[in-house]
Amino acid sequence: MAAASHPGQEFCGKPPLLILSTRTSETFLILSIENLCVTRGERPIIDGLSFNVGSGEALVVMGANGSGKTTLLRALAGFIQPKSGAILLDGHSEDARISDACHYVGHLNAIKTSQTVAENLSFYAGFLDDTLSQAEISDRVEDALARFALDRLASVPSGYLSAGQKRRLALARVLCAARPIWLLDEPTTSLDQESTTQLASVINAHVASGGVAIAATHLDLGVGPARTLQLDQKARSA
């Protein structure tokens, strides 16, 4: 049974509001998951899960392999239709798809090896936010690469990157287009300690500026104060 533990239900994960913010959204967001059930074939993967996350919160989803972390994130991203229950995004216009408010970084890095590092990011920046001008895109890409210490590799074909560098490039995508909710599936895969720290600081800054970050991991992310959602191994129907 998937059990949600809410240490400090009332926004205790919210960091002090001193940090200079580059607000990603003007309105206060609450993503509410109500009695969510997701099945794979006949087998329930997530069964009756409910929780809320709001602006300025980081939620770390923990659990063993097969406990449904990936399934949960993919359901939030809109890839999987829940069997029942609701995923609601308050504070956002009714007709907007939830996936339009989300960045999703899955297990796969979505990197085109024949393009350079900067080209990869530029495409995603311009595609995911088609209001950006060419100048804004290159600004954002430059900034994103710097935050993940990839700036020196900007013009290198991304096929040459190491596994850790590729992962950082995939994560840098979330800084290219402004979206309030980040869904990160095992973001620290093949990252070293230093890169993990970089990631944590990026997430902290996003959360501090009113964003939401939901990360599935089985390791400690080192993200500031964060709430934890523990998904337990679902007892399979025998």
Binding site: A77, G78, F79, S99, D100, C102, H103, Y104, G106, H107, L108, N109, A110, I111, K112, Y124, F127, L128, D130, R173
Partner: peptide
């Protein structure tokens, strides 16, 4: 599809 780019593209507008 194989490298995950389709997932990211599907998140677009």
């Amino acid at each position: 599809f194989d490298d995950g780019a389709l997932e990211v593209i599907a998140m677009g507008p």
